[in-house]
Write a protein that binds this DNA or RNA. Sequence first.
RNA 1: GCUGCCGUAGUUCAAUGGAUAGAACGGAGGUUUCCUAAACCUUAAAUGUAGGUUCGAUUCCUACCGGUGGCACCA
Length: 584
Amino acid sequence: MDIETRLKTAIRDALRAAGITAPESLSAIVLEHPDDPTHGDFATTIALVAAKAARVNPRELAGKLAAALSAAHIESVDRVETAGPGFINFYLTTGYFIRELETIEKRGDLYGNSNEQRGRRVLVEYTDPNPFKEFHIGHLMSNAIGESIARLIASQGAKVRRMCYQGDFGLHVAKTLWAALHREAVATGSIPAKRAPLAERIAFLGSCYAEGSRAYEDDPAAKQAIDELNKKIFDGKDRAVNKLYKLGKKWSLQHFEEIYAKLGTKFDYYVLESEVAHDGIAIVDEFLEKGVFERSDGAVVFHGEKHDPKLHTRVFINSQGIPTYEAKELGLNTKKWKKVHPDESIIITANEQNDYFRVVMKALELILPEAAKATKHISHGMLRFAEGKMSSRTGNVITGESLIADVEKLVQTKLALRDMDDDEKKEAAEIIAVAAIKYSILRQATSSDIVYDFDTSISFEGDSGPYLLYTAVRAQSVLDKAKSEGVKPKIEWKVTDKREIGLLERELVRFPEVVARAASEKAPHHVATYLIGLASLFNGWYARVPIVAADDPGSPYKVALTQAVRIVLANGLKLLGIKVPDRM
RNA sequence: GCUGCCGUAGUUCAAUGGAUAGAACGGAGGUUUCCUAAACCUUAAAUGUAGGUUCGAUUCCUACCGGUGGCACCA
């Protein structure tokens, strides 16, 4: 039984003994860590909450409960005190912390994991870039958040599967291909050769998309031509169009694969929109007959507002018979259900899709209620410029790979003076750059926007990814020194020691609790916030205390503590999808 | 117009309804014969406005103000 369960059980027993109706579920008993360490390791406000119903003085009730809790001699609890208006504070024993430190060393890279979600199957869909369009920094955001949530859930014992849904169908493809064909026709540019570097071919597609989008909005003739081309692509009967379509798609997917590798994501499933489009139509047709969908102006629509006034009408099949994003979403989700049958199906997108998802999920609820029930849409904020929204339609975007490359260059200048060879520097620069970017995304709650500014968004100091890496690397170099000087880490504690369990030890042992919370709330920023606090405590301690000294009897313990810090930092960073370089 | 989300130091972010609102950057001042100064130490600085619920509100409710997203054939 863990310490929190022991405390909560004891609190419930004490309440009952005091003649107060105690909550049946332990989760209703709230334990917190006081901000001020002199208030103990755990505190509960149960006396404040229960006092009113019982019509007693909260301070008296707290005193009564504390006396009972004291008398109960809870394992690992040193003493119980009351404070303020009726707080009950618990102080843990030295032995508790020493045993936890031993657990860290013993469990190593498994420390922080649990079996809380064993047996559950969870599917996470994220990143979702579209072939023929750029992989922009919004996709970077979805990837960082999705990857971290996947790792967090897996750390709690669930079987996690990752899915990437890529939009290879739809108007954006027609716009891009139209511009490519148009350029050839008017001889203003030609399609790059196969031998051209991939980056050049991708840039070509991006500029075609921007050109096609402008034409679609400004030129009615072009709009008509693009709509017709969209139909041709969907029908798949025009050989020339098919050939160009397949080529562009291949380039895009190849390009995305390079980025996933750099970011450290491995998908279990790739689903293309073209694979679910026909299923989507079939579903909509079937439920059109059953009355879920209706015809309107030649299109097939779902009147969301008929089910919930907060919802609105959306088109599922347009008047040309082509399925929209909505119909494809239904095809995708029924496919997920058949293929993976998850207990929980998580979809991560930008929050501009919130209202869209509410409508589509309502439709799914009427079609496949079990699947709708298991599905959870998590949205993240937008990466935006101070001046406004980023849009690939206008070409006003920052691509994922250019951002990584720019940050890498900056990191290289900082590594210049280090005594490392070029390959080592290059490898470290890539790891550090990805860490800096991912951390800047994961440090805050996923729902809020990030206003992007290269100079301030990607930080190397203070509350940043590189700070965490630097701390982990520094801890490693202390461990290396200990090894070379023959100081072996040893967790030992004698009653006669004058040392005290410090803030560093107290913070270290809270890691599993933080991970559990981050996993259940699907909120990676809890891990990020925790790691910064831990790193800061370690750095402060490091600056004050010499760790490695052969003639210091306390040295083996301090080396062991350093090792525990290194383990927890590395494990936490891994949950954020961040690797630690050997040196930096 | 209807509707969703968000307003915390100069700036970017934290804070399961609890004790003195916590960091980072930037500002001011300091630390390197010693394990990586991408570090450390000291210091000034904040809950949009008005009500309400509560023993207790940054957190919940209402209104207003400001920002941002969505609202029919894009994704």
